[in-house]
């Protein structure tokens, strides 16, 4: 794999060198330089557990180490539904070439009858950069969790519905949903379930997952970069974990803790007592000596 990478790299280098040599001697070079640079656009839609919806757009040019974001460039966001196009917003990229646009909670995209919105981001380009545009299909999805114990086996049942303009729910089939449990840093995946024609997926949950102090587990369902729904996460809490003690136990009396073992304190104390007792005994003799003078 690595060697393959190396070969590709070498070939690329060779090509660049050859091209540069060819171009530098010909008049064509001037024209090529004047040619506009290619621009890449990335666009994602995501909806997090809190229901916050976000459209992220990234505008970059160059490749490899020279890749950089295009800052302060205008991007127009259009929406197409039922053969008509609206301009949703005119946005500007930040210093990294990024746009993060949140959608207000009650904001609704123009949708077609299937509940699908088409969002298009366009960058007009300028003297140096070519223009580019990207399209995204977005539909609203909803997850429902139910928890079931069947023959002492724990099952998580998830139902996926598409919500259209009239808030009608349509089951989504053949959707791969990642199920995991929320951990401190990330989600620990359990498995991927595929929904059936009723939009229902069923997953066996292992018995030995540690939960919080009460044994609560936060289950997270997630679809990633789906063509229609983007990236959506939804979580639900249920008492199916093994409880973890959150009590802070005092550290034992040990060599590596603040409190020393008793025997150690005793040994030092007794030794010191013995030594200093004799010291003061001999000093007392000197005091007697002085008194007798």
């Amino acid at each position: 794999m690595n060697s393959l990478k190396k070969i590709i790299k070498n070939i690329t280098y060779a090509l660049i060198i050859v091209t540069v040599n060819l171009l530098s001697v010909s008049e064509v070079s001037a024209k090529v330089q004047a040619k506009k640079e290619r621009v890449r656009m990335k666009m994602y839609y995501s909806k997090n557990d809190a229901g916050e919806r976000l459209i992220s757009i990234g505008l970059t040019a160059g490749s490899g180490k020279k890749m950089h974001g295009l800052k302060n460039e205008k991007v127009i966001l259009n929406s197409t539904a039922n053969d008509s196009t609206f301009t949703l917003a005119i946005l500007e990229t930040d210093s990294l070439g990024l746009i993060n646009l949140y959608l207000a909670n009650d904001y609704k995209f123009p949708m077609d009858e299937n509940g699908i919105s088409i969002i298009k981001a366009s960058y007009g380009g300028d003297d140096t950069y070519r223009s580019i545009s990207k399209e995204l299909e977005i539909a609203d999805i909803e997850f429902d969790f139910t928890f079931e114990i069947d023959d002492s086996v724990k099952y998580l049942i998830i139902k996926a519905n598409k919500i259209d303009r009239e808030e009608n729910k349509t089951p989504i089939n053949e959707l791969d949903i990642k199920i995991g449990v929320q951990r401190l840093y990330s989600v620990l995946p359990i498995d991927i379930v595929e929904t059936n024609e009723d939009g229902i997926g069923k997953l066996e949950i292992p018995d030995d997952l540690p939960g919080d102090a009460e044994g609560n587990l936060t289950f997270v369902a997630k679809i990633e970069d789906h063509d229609e729904f983007g990236t959506v996460t939804k979580s639900a809490s249920h008492e199916w974990g093994t409880p973890v003690s959150y009590e802070v136990k005092p550290l034992p009396r040990q060599l590596y803790t603040d409190e020393a073992p008793i025997w150690m304190i005793a040994a030092v104390f007794i030794t010191l007592l013995g030594a200093w007792y004799h010291f003061f005994l001999s000093i007392s003799k000197l005091i007697k000596l002085k008194k007798s003078a």
Binding site: M1, S46, L54, M67, D225
Partner: peptide
């Protein structure tokens, strides 16, 4: 190879939007 890496990065990006709550887009590779 390259494609795979890209995919990885994109996944990473999504993971970040997912876990951190605050979203941002990666400009390039990692």
């Amino acid at each position: 190879m390259k494609k795979k890496e890209d995919k990885g990065n994109r996944r990473k990006f999504l993971k970040n939007t997912f876990t951190l709550g605050a979203a941002a887009l990666a400009t390039g590779s990692g």
